[in-house]
Design a protein around this nucleic acid. Structure first.
Lengths: 197, 197
DNA sequence: ACCTGAACACCGTTCAAGT
DNA sequence: ACCTGAACACCGTTCAAGT
């Protein structure tokens, strides 16, 4: 599992081949199938291994700062594993580490007084945004190909705006927007442990 | 292009094979390479064909309702083409239709008085969330496999929350959260055509 | 319980050849 | 300018056989 993760980190997801992984492990390609049903299961296990690196937030501060810390930790882990990040949001994977994250995220929202359905929707939004950030690659210059020449000038301005997708702070902007949106919309219902105003 | 799109809509992205598309068109597999450099270009063209179905919002209402309409239109188009939707957010594609959308989205934010960098970040957040929503599939029951039995009870509660990912209104919840977040954060700077308060 | 080599049914794509 | 068939270099995976 670890060498598979290293392989993807170094050479990208398409470099992850049963054959390549096997030779990396100095073993026959078929040997892998004694430990894993198929490539899909291998990837699922890799994703959960990666999610083990996510730090759960400490129990201090209000719910927005804790949610923010959780999302940032996920974001950072996905940043260090860009190849696997691309596959993360593809499916809601049920592994021990992914469950741990979902329980905490939902728990924070429920504790904050969100109704069950709203908590699910809110967590889904945060999750989707966080994972979605890592799906996008750079603009490929070859994609300019079949463009009506009339639009060509606008390319430069638009891509100038968007090509800094992984600029520092870009992720945080949307994250904070989501959180202030949640805080604004949210009508807190009384809790068992209300914090002193 | 159209038959390729139909093929993906009906049988999913993995069914899109140069060979399968060729036989669908009653033609030799190699004939396709006279119209397209490789499969990657084919997919890029398909994506832009799909984006042509997006309706740009009418110029009525304030910027949030127009942005909302734009995002909803994208969402609806992605919903009708789930196979291609999965590939959409993978890359910032530069086609005539995708440019049209980006120009409008950025334009609305700039017109609303956002600074250039904030407009880019805000559009990126909306774009990421909208596209990211269509990356996730259902939970696969086989993924319960290697779970420590201790966590099994929490599965049911967590998946019960999250498995309705495509429930009606789920997308809109996060979208509206983002928009109210933008509205709340935003300090409108004076415009050339200020609306009467 | 674990590993192996050969083989099968696929891929995308190149290339020489045709019209 | 467009199409074709054969072939190449890959895939994931099955299967019978070994230890």
């Amino acid at each position: 599992m670890r060498t598979a993760l290293r392989l993807v980190d170094e050479h990208g997801l398409p470099a992850l081949t049963m054959r390549a992984l096997a030779t990396e492990l100095r073993v026959s390609p078929m040997a892998l199938y004694n430990h894993v049903r198929d490539k899909n299961e291998l990837i699922n296990l890799m994703v959960d291994l990666m999610l083990g690196e996510v730090d759960l937030p400490t129990n201090t501060g209000d719910w927005t700062t804790q949610l923010r810390a959780l999302a940032c930790s996920i974001h950072q882990v996905l940043t260090t594993h860009p190849g696997l990040a691309r596959v993360y949001s593809t499916k809601v994977r049920i592994g021990p580490h992914s469950l741990r994250i979902m329980e905490r995220g939902l728990g924070l929202l429920l504790q904050a007084g969100f109704r069950q359905s709203d908590a699910a929707d809110a967590f889904f939004a945060l999750f989707t945004y966080t994972a979605g950030c890592h799906q996008m690659g750079r603009v490929d210059p070859r994609d300019y190909s079949a463009l009506p020449s009339k639009q060509i000038p606008s390319i430069t301005t638009v891509t100038a705006h968007l090509n800094g997708v992984h600029q520092h702070g870009r992720f945080e902007y949307g994250l904070d927007t989501l959180l202030t949106g949640l805080k604004t919309t949210h009508n807190p219902t009384p809790q068992h442990h209300p914090t002193a105003a």
